[in-house]
């Protein structure tokens, strides 16, 4: 079943979160590769980061917004043409069993 790499990754759990199906071969290959990559990422453990502010944006800008004005941009037809499956004017998926929200 699920197994953790040296760096603590439970690849099945993460692939589950990311909704990516992995073949056994892929899973085996990724396991080793990700282990190596995570090891390299732990390089950041060398840094003393106490009191350093995290950077989330490349530029320090704030309060960017738009005024509340409605504008119709009807892309319904184009959107429905792109949909893999549709039902009249809605997008169709297999029946949803509600486990979320």
């Amino acid at each position: 079943m699920s197994e953790r790499t040296a760096n603590g990754m439970d690849i099945d759990y993460v692939a589950q979160l990311a909704r990516i199906g992995l073949t056994p071969a892929e899973r085996a290959k990724f396991q080793g590769q990700l282990e190596a990559i995570l090891g390299a990422m732990r390089k950041l453990d060398e840094l003393e980061l106490e009191g350093i502010e995290p950077t989330a944006h490349a530029m320090p800008v704030h309060n960017v917004w738009r005024e509340d004005r409605a504008r119709e941009w009807d892309v319904k037809d184009a959107a429905l043409r792109n949909a893999p499956a549709r039902m009249q004017d809605s997008i169709q998926v297999p029946k949803i069993v509600d486990t979320s929200g």
């Binding site: 039902m87 997008i91 297999p94 029946k95």
Partner: peptide
């Protein structure tokens, strides 16, 4: 929700 599918708006 329909019998085997769901439609999204």
């Amino acid at each position: 929700h329909h019998s085997t599918t769901s439609a999204i708006d």
